[in-house]
């Protein structure tokens, strides 16, 4: 929900050219706040809740993996939102941030796929 509010607020700011934000540079951040930070994270959360469980006390259940997914996804989207618009300037911090955010987002997806794969099964 926070990502949704942030994305739509950023979209509003980008829609007002007088505010001076470069819409070309910030567009990818806006899109990924919306589709990754909000839509994908909402799907991850609801799927984690409603997909058939392997618990209780199933040794295959790995609860910490869900927190890895949550932490990496949110940190990845946050770092990306700040780093990607600054890539045009060639700053080393922006480049490192963008590469780190790419890795964090990928780790989050891998964690979710590992969680969901075994929980998706025929009745």
């Amino acid at each position: 929900m926070l990502h949704l509010v942030a994305a739509l607020s950023l979209g509003l700011v980008l829609a007002i050219p007088q505010l001076g934000l470069d819409s070309g540079a910030w567009r990818a951040s806006y899109v990924h706040l919306l589709v990754l930070g909000w839509a994908t994270q909402m799907i991850f959360g609801v799927a984690y809740w409603m997909f058939p469980r392997t618990e209780p006390l199933d040794p295959r259940a790995v609860p910490w993996l869900g927190w890895v997914c949550f932490g990496c996804l949110n940190l990845g989207v946050l770092v990306r939102t700040l780093a990607e618009p600054a890539l045009g300037g060639g700053s080393v911090v922006a480049i490192a941030g963008a590469v780190a955010s790419a890795a964090l987002q990928l780790i989050a997806v891998v964690a979710f796929v590992l969680i969901a794969w075994s929980r998706v099964r025929a009745r």
């Binding site: 990306r80 990607e84 963008a98 987002q105 990928l106």
Partner: peptide, 10 residues
């Protein structure tokens, strides 16, 4: 997507 971002950045 991660590869594309890494390509754009570095």
């Amino acid at each position: 997507g991660a590869s594309y971002l890494a390509w754009r950045a570095a």
